[in-house]
């Protein structure tokens, strides 16, 4: 099975356990894809009004995050925050700034590095 889909399911469980965090994202509608640069793995998650509505293995999204598979898994499994690989160029993001700032905030709350 696609390892990123498994990892995203764990991330979703951690997110769903935080109603305060979900409430803060009310009104946010976005599809986020994570694409591994060193394998064919990818995963997408759909958020509507701050609720995760769908996880799939598509690569089309409003925000596309690209890094090696190990880094993406580390982030989704909350072993590592996204800031460090982002700052040093190992993880890139493409999409609207307000979407990935929000994503950065969620990742920061769930994984306080």
């Amino acid at each position: 099975m696609n390892p990123l889909v498994n990892a995203m399911s764990r991330f979703a469980r951690a997110y769903n356990r935080r109603p305060d965090l979900m409430a803060e994202q009310r009104g946010w509608i976005c599809t986020i894809a994570l694409v591994a640069s060193d394998s064919s793995a990818s995963v997408a998650v759909r958020l509507e009004n701050g609720l995760i509505t769908c996880i799939s293995d598509q690569a089309e999204a409003d925000v596309v995050i690209t890094s090696d598979e190990a880094t993406l898994r580390d982030i989704l499994e909350l072993r590592r925050g996204p800031n460090e690989p982002y700052l040093f160029g190992d993880l890139t993001v493409r999409g609207r700034e307000r979407d990935f700032l929000r994503l950065d905030y969620i990742a920061g709350v769930l994984c306080p590095e």
Binding site: L87, Y105, G108, E113
Partner: peptide, 24 residues
């Protein structure tokens, strides 16, 4: 944002590494 990212990973004091949830 640069300082915040450095703080979030502990390079600067971590208390500077938080985004405000409303204004981001």
């Amino acid at each position: 944002r640069f300082a915040c990212a450095l703080a979030a990973q502990g390079t600067l004091p971590r208390r500077f590494g938080r985004l405000d949830p409303r204004t981001m």
